[in-house]
């Protein structure tokens, strides 16, 4: 009467239908072909002398050694680190201040929030062009009329060009970071402040001992995303200075782009890209680790 079906005596877990594999595997393969393979090829090229076409041979670590000796590349790293450091600190400090302001007992809160977030919507390239005009034409002519010496020349043409780029980056970068800090501030239960008020806490103590620890996770998000983003800085430099004057504002990304595509340093810039990857990875991981630890301590 009974149909007996031969089965393995022990089969663990429930079998996953084939359809589910079809929902992941094809796009996974495409991702592998267009993302992972280029990445691996990049690593591979970094050990060759390929110029982008023609024949090649292995050169070992020569490209990496060359990078450290090449003043353009070392300068790009110096510039990028300096830029990322200043941009991260300033953007986060100012964004936190704006967020605290927006979280205060103000009127038109939603309207102001929308205004402060507006720059996030705009492409950095065009914002870069607009600021290039402001620095190049508007401010100098204003400076000349007012006889303000420091403003009468185009900052983007001087050795301080990076400050111009930094200002534009802050203007745009504030939007996102402010939004995140505001979300953090609004997640704090007001009863905590009421309890603190009863304990006689002054505003500065309130911020340092209560608010800041409570929004620490938001600080982590912002810091990690900021550093990662600013180490990649590209659009605004292309718009404002093209890396100049000289190569003073050439970031790592700009260097990879200009020398890798237009120059003949395909293999060297591949090595540069690999180093950039390692830098970004290391900094992100260290940040996550340190900041999470500190959050635990505070939490």
């Amino acid at each position: 009467m009974q149909e007996t079906i031969k089965r393995k005596p022990k089969r663990k877990g429930k079998k996953i239908p084939f359809a589910y594999y079809m929902m992941v595997v094809p796009i996974g393969i495409l991702f592998f072909i267009f993302h992972t393979i280029p990445f691996l090829r990049g690593v591979f090229y970094s050990f060759t002398d390929w110029s982008g076409y023609g024949t090649w041979k292995f050169v070992g670590l020569k490209n990496y050694l060359y990078m450290f000796g090449n003043s353009n590349i070392t300068h790009a790293y110096w510039f990028t680190f300096k830029f990322a450091l200043f941009a991260t600190i300033l953007v986060n400090a100012i964004a936190l201040a704006i967020a605290v302001g927006l979280n205060g007992k103000i009127k038109y809160q939603n309207f102001l929030k929308a205004i402060y977030f507006l720059p996030y919507m705009l492409g950095s390239l065009i914002v870069g062009f607009v600021f290039k005009f402001i620095f190049g034409n508007l401010l100098p002519s204003l400076g000349q009329t007012l006889h303000w010496g420091f403003m009468s020349s185009n900052i983007l043409g001087t050795t301080h060009a990076w400050i111009g780029i930094l200002i534009m980056t802050i203007w745009q970068g504030l939007a996102f970071n402010t939004l995140i800090y505001l979300a953090g501030l609004q997640s704090v239960d007001p009863e905590i402040y009421e309890a603190a008020a009863l304990d006689g806490v002054n505003p500065w103590q309130k911020f340092m001992r209560l608010t800041f620890p409570l929004i620490a996770p938001f600080f982590t998000i912002n810091l990690v995303l900021s550093v990662k983003g600013y180490l990649m800085v590209f659009d605004q430099i292309m718009a404002m200075t093209n890396g100049g004057p000289g190569n003073s504002t050439t970031s790592i990304s700009v260097e990879i782009y200009t020398q890798g595509f237009q120059g003949s340093q395909f293999a060297i810039q591949s090595a540069n890209a690999v180093v950039l990857f390692i830098v970004v990875l290391t900094i992100s991981l260290i940040q996550l680790r340190v900041l999470n630890k500190r959050e635990e301590r505070l939490g």
């Binding site: 009974q2 149909e3 007996t4 079906i5 089969r11 663990k12 877990g13 429930k14």
Partner: peptide
């Protein structure tokens, strides 16, 4: 859930 061992029989069929 899968049955690890044994038979589940409904109207005479496993």
């Amino acid at each position: 859930e899968d049955i690890s061992k044994g038979d589940l029989v409904m109207d005479g069929k496993v």
